[in-house]
Simulated assay, not measured.
Amino acid sequence: MAVVDIKENVRLKLELDGGMDGDRHVIKSKTLSRVKPTVENEDLFSVAQSLSGLQTLPLFKVKRLEEIELREE
Rank of each mutant, 00 (worst) to 15 (best):
R34S: 14
S29V: 10
D43V: 04
H25G: 05
R34W: 11
K13R: 15
M20S: 06
I27M: 06
E42A: 02
E15M: 15
N9W: 09
Q55I: 02
V39W: 07
I27P: 12
V62H: 00
P58D: 00
E66G: 00
G18N: 03
L16S: 02
L59R: 04
S50L: 14
G19M: 06
E67V: 14
V47D: 06
L44I: 00
G22R: 06
I6P: 13
K61R: 15
D23K: 06
V62T: 12
L44V: 01
N9Q: 11
Q55N: 05
V47G: 07
K36N: 15
K36G: 13
G53A: 10
K30F: 06
S29T: 15
L12Q: 08
V39A: 00
S52H: 04
F60E: 10
L44D: 00
K28V: 15
E69L: 14
L70T: 10
V47S: 08
A2H: 07
T31Q: 11
T31K: 14
E15P: 07
K7P: 13
M20L: 09
D21T: 00
T56R: 13
R24T: 13
L65C: 12
K30S: 07
R34T: 13
K63L: 12
D5H: 12
H25K: 15
F45A: 14
S52E: 02
A48H: 00
T38C: 07
D5P: 11
K36A: 15
L32K: 12
V39H: 01
G22S: 00
M20I: 03
L51G: 01
K30Q: 15
G53N: 11
K30I: 12
R64P: 03
